[in-house]
Design a protein around this nucleic acid. Structure first.
Length: 439
RNA sequence: CGGAGCGUGGCGCAGUCUGGUAGCGCACUUGGCUGGGGGCCAAGGGGUCGCAGGUUCGAAUCCUGCCGCUCCGACCA
C-alpha cells in the first residue's frame, strides 16, 4: 500500500477526549474515529488489525473443533422472555421496537438464540457434542463507556457455545476452549493468565477469566509468577486427547482478580518472591453453566436410555475489538504502538527519505514491488514529506520493521533496517535487507 | 446512576470573571528555499463560538432550559 493514497489520518496532537494510552494511540494513528460515546468507526489501519485478530481467533476456534455460524445482531424479545432474562438483564440491553410495535433488542449476547437454533435441530445424544461460535457485533449500553475500544458499548466479540450430554462432556468442551484460549492469546504475542472469576449475569459455576498483564489494566490481579513463563505454543495440542492435565497445570497455581482475591490464601500458596500483584485486562471469559438456558428453553436430547434431558452448555467469549486496545496497552512505548508481528497491520514500513531524488525513488519503487511480489505486507511511505515526519509516523503506527532508503545511504550502497520493538538499526545492502524481510 | 468538568476552524487551546461583533499554535492551499527524527520565508482559505429561548442598543461572554462529550466512583466482554 502506498501511503500517499492511503486513508490514514495521523495526528501530532492527542484529542482531549482520550485518556488511556491505547485510546490515544489508536486515535493518533488514524485507526479509529469515535462515532458517539463507546461507539467507533474503524479506519483502514485499525480495521486491518481487527481483521488479523479476528482471523487468529477464528483459526484457533476451528482447530479446537468449533464450527462458525453467524447470528443476527437484532433479536426478537420473545426468546429472552422465555429464558427470563428479558426482565433480568436491565438497562444495559438496548431495547427497540420494529414498525409493528414488536419488542426487539440489539443482542448483548447470544445464549438464547443459539439454544433456540440448537433445540430446533438436535434431538439425540448421537448429535453431541457440538461447539458453535460466531464473531459478531454486540451492544451493551454501559453506564459509562471508557477506555476507547476496550470498554465500548458496541464491540466485536467471538462467542462460542458448547452442547454436551452431561457434566463430564461439558467439562471436556470447557477444557478444549481453555486450551484454545491459551493458544489464541499466545499467537497474538500476549501472555494471558486464566484466573478464577465471578460468573456475573451470564450465570454458571465453573468459570475463568483470561487476563493479560498491563499497567493500565482495569482490574487488580494477583497471581503466581510462574504463569508469566508458561509456554503453550511449544507443545502440539491434540484436542481429541484428555486435556485435563493441561488445564490442571494452568489452574493449580494461585491466580485471581481482586473480587475473588483472598490475601491469606495468596500468602499461603505463593512464596513471597513469586507473588505478582499487578493490573490486568480481561480479554476472554469462559463459563460452564449447565442447564441454565436449556431448561427454560427446553433444549432436550434423548439419552441412550431414551430419556429426554436438558443439554449441558457452556459459553466462551473473546472481546475481539477489545483485544486491539489490549495489545496496544501491553505493547507500546513513548513514540507509539509496537505491534507484535502476528497482528501488525503491515509487516514492513518502507520509507522513501527523499522522493525528489530520482535514484532514491527508483530504488524504493523497485523494493516496494519486490516485497509485494514476495507476499510481504508493506506500507510504502512515498509521500513528499520531511524525513522526520515519516520517521515519527512510522514509529507511531508501530509496524515491526522499517526499511529506510535515502540518497546518502544509497551512495554508500546501504539501506537501513530498523526493528521497531527495540529500535535496533542495521545498515546493510538492499539485497540483504530484502533477503531478510522475505526469508 | 451519584460527584466533577468541558463544548470556540480538522486537532490542541486562549478569550467568558469585567458584554462592544473572534484569536494563537499545528494542520490545509499556492509559490520559493529545503531535505537522515514532525524545517524556513511569503501570500492565502476556513469558525451560525453545541442547540433553543431570554436580558440588552449590542451576547462566545450574563440568565434559563436542553443536547453532546470526558474524568472519578458504583457496574461489566
Amino acid at each position: 500500500m502506498r501511503l500517499s493514497g492511503y486513508f490514514m489520518p495521523t495526528m501530532k496532537e492527542t484529542p482531549a477526549e482520550a485518556e488511556i494510552v491505547s485510546h490515544r494511540l489508536m486515535l493518533r494513528a488514524g485507526m479509529i474515529r469515535q462515532a458517539s460515546a463507546g461507539i467507533y468507526s474503524w479506519l483502514p489501519l485499525g480495521f486491518r488489525v481487527l481483521k488479523k485478530i479476528e482471523q487468529i481467533v477464528r483459526e484457533e476456534q476451528d482447530r479446537a473443533g468449533a464450527q462458525e455460524v453467524l447470528m443476527p445482531t437484532i433479536q426478537s424479545a420473545d426468546l429472552w422472555k422465555e429464558s427470563g432474562r428479558y426482565d433480568a438483564y436491565g438497562p444495559e440491553m438496548l431495547r427497540i421496537q420494529d414498525r409493528h410495535g414488536r419488542d426487539m433488542l440489539y443482542g448483548p449476547t447470544n445464549e438464547e438464540l443459539i439454544t433456540e437454533i440448537f433445540r430446533s435441530a438436535v434431538r439425540s445424544y448421537r448429535d453431541l457434542p457440538r461447539m458453535l461460535y460466531h464473531i459478531q457485533w454486540k451492544f451493551r449500553d454501559e453506564v459509562r463507556p471508557r477506555f476507547g475500544v476496550m470498554r465500548g458499548r458496541e464491540f466485536l466479540m467471538k462467542d462460542n457455545y458448547s452442547f454436551d450430554l452431561d457434566y463430564a462432556g461439558a467439562k471436556r468442551s470447557y477444557n478444549k476452549m481453555f486450551v484454545a484460549y491459551l493458544r489464541t492469546f499466545a499467537r497474538m504475542g500476549l501472555q494471558a493468565i486464566p484466573m478464577e472469576a465471578e460468573t456475573g449475569p451470564i450465570g454458571g459455576d465453573l468459570s475463568h477469566e483470561f487476563i493479560i498483564l498491563a499497567d493500565t489494566g482495569e482490574s487488580e490481579v494477583f497471581c503466581h509468577r510462574d504463569f508469566v513463563e508458561f509456554d503453550v505454543l511449544g507443545a502440539g495440542i491434540d484436542y481429541q486427547s484428555d486435556l485435563e492435565p493441561v488445564v490442571e497445570a494452568w489452574t493449580k497455581l494461585y491466580a485471581r482478580t481482586d473480587d475473588k482475591h483472598d490475601p491469606a490464601a495468596f500468602e499461603n500458596q505463593v512464596p513471597e518472591d513469586k507473588r505478582v500483584h499487578r493490573r490486568g485486562i480481561e480479554v476472554g471469559h469462559i463459563f460452564y453453566f449447565g442447564t441454565k438456558y436449556s431448561d427454560p428453553l427446553k433444549a432436550l436430547v434423548a439419552t441412550p436410555e431414551g430419556e429426554a434431558v436438558a443439554v449441558h452448555m457452556g459459553s466462551y467469549g473473546i472481546g475481539v475489538s477489545r483485544l486491539v486496545g489490549a495489545v496496544i496497552e501491553a505493547s507500546h512505548d513513548e513514540a507509539g504502538i509496537v505491534w507484535p508481528e502476528p497482528v501488525a497491520p503491515f509487516r514492513v514500513g518502507l520509507i522513501n527519505l527523499k522522493t525528489a531524488d530520482a535514484a532514491c525513488t527508483k530504488a524504493c519503487e523497485e523494493t516496494y514491488a519486490k516485497l509485494r511480489d514476495a507476499g510481504v505486507e508493506v506500507l510504502y511511505d512515498d509521500r513528499d514529506e520531511r524525513p522526520g515526519a515519516k520517521f515519527n509516523d512510522m514509529d507511531l503506527i508501530g509496524l515491526p520493521w522499517q526499511l529506510v532508503i535515502g540518497p546518502r545511504g544509497l551512495a554508500k550502497g546501504v539501506v537501513e533496517l530498523k526493528r521497531r520493538r527495540d529500535a535496533e538499526r542495521e545498515e546493510l545492502s538492499l539485497d540483504s535487507a530484502l533477503a531478510r524481510l522475505t526469508g
